[in-house]
Amino acid sequence: MEALFLAPPPWEDWSLFGQQVVSGFATGAMYALFALALVLIYRSTDIINFAQSEVAMFGTFAMWSLYLAGLEAWQLIILGVLLGFALGAVVERVVVRPVEGRPHLSIVVVTLGLFLLFNSVATWIWARGELPKHFPSPFSFEGVNLGFTSIPQHHLGLLLVGAGVMVLLVLLFNRTKVGLAMRATAQNPLAAQLMGISVGRMLTLGWALSAALGGLAGVFIAPITFLHPGYMLPVFLYASAAAVLGGLTSPPGAVVGGFVIGIGENLLGTYTPAKWLGPEMKLPLILLVLILILLVRPTGLFGERAVRRV
């Protein structure tokens, strides 16, 4: 039996199981934020933004330079979010706007181009010397005792910040005029225009907000995985799996998807039968589960069935 599991099976070590679940919640919160960022773009522009991960990576490397210049970890978080916001706005204005209204594939290709651009430029500027780079967290990695188990302080921070940001997003979209205008624009841009809403400004804001969420996830994940030009790519894969699982159009779906994927990743990584599969196989395994779910529910867990009136 022991040979089957990498770790002792869950019923023999509840503390380890609990730890994997709770820290899965924590990384899940970041996947959820990243998935929300993808959903935000998908709802307004109808595409998956493939540049999402690299914009976040680029921003986090810029924060790393500021870290070397002596800034505090918490300052890097705030600046990382602001830089993400600015990068998102610039990307929409400069490269997405000209292909707006073109076939979706054109916009997808533009985001793929951005992926390469940000990746290359970041590699060119920062990928010198030893990789990966250390990135600071405002929290420590010492365990916090939760009673049944303990998790690193940083992970608890992830969970709390993630939950806080989700609450802020709910308030933004449901309680403010600009949030309502953004939802309206995503649904029916023509009607939004007739209400006097500047559709272009709402699109810019959506991309900016999305990249800000990406930036936040970037600076919170870097202390765990360390920083190198490809470090956000797995996050992108997990988050897009989370977004698809949630239905791609549903913000609550993205959040649930994020948590499911986060916990699933940890449990698969810990308990995959070592005899047949190593922990390296957790990503393909998660994607396999995802495909199975989509076979049963093609619209994801919370997605709206696409209804087209003829």
Binding site: K177, L180, A181, R183, A184, Q187, N188, L190, A191, A192, L194, M195, G196, I197
Partner: peptide, 26 residues
């Protein structure tokens, strides 16, 4: 000058009240 377009172009997934609020957007 407010245009009520052909086919109404409502925000079908928003509530009646939200649609009316959007009318007063400016």
């Amino acid at each position: 000058i407010v245009h009520v377009p052909e086919g109404r172009q409502l925000f079908t997934q928003l509530t009646v009240l939200e649609n009316l609020e959007l009318g007063a957007y400016l």
